[in-house]
């Protein structure tokens, strides 16, 4: 059983399906839901998880058919790097201004 979800159906399948009937359950979800689903992967309540665009790209690489998800990861990675740089920049500005205030 594999559930592709943008809502709460994965948890519903775990609670009312997997728990009672003990079948293999895999899931694919949006990235926003990903962090909430990883604990179920660790506890083996999910056999596998495709989390967001990253999960989709990993799946495409696994089956050897690189398509939309893999090409989407390039801008995705660039934007993540930019956000990390902005976070670092913001922290540097914050600590510099704090030091200047206390000096």
């Amino acid at each position: 059983m594999f559930d592709l979800a943008a809502g709460t159906t994965i948890e519903t399948w775990i609670v009312f399906g997997k728990e009672k009937y003990k079948f293999e359950l895999g899931a694919g979800c949006t990235a926003v839901m990903g962090p909430d689903m990883y604990p179920f992967l660790q506890s083996k309540q999910l056999s596998g998880l495709l989390g967001g665009l990253k999960g989709a790209a990993e799946y495409e690489a696994l089956v050897g058919k690189k398509a939309n998800a893999v090409s989407g990861m390039r801008p995705q990675s660039v934007v993540h790097v930019i956000i990390i740089l902005f976070v670092i920049f913001g922290n540097i500005v914050y600590f510099t201004s704090r030091r200047a205030r206390h000096a």
Binding site: A31, G52, G72
Partner: peptide
């Protein structure tokens, strides 16, 4: 660290919608 991971995934989710539309 947990909030950071959630934030990263949320950014990824929103961006993938934009990337899908731009594609």
């Amino acid at each position: 660290i947990s909030f950071g991971a959630s934030f990263g995934y949320t950014v990824m989710g929103r961006l993938s919608l934009l990337i899908g539309r731009i594609q």
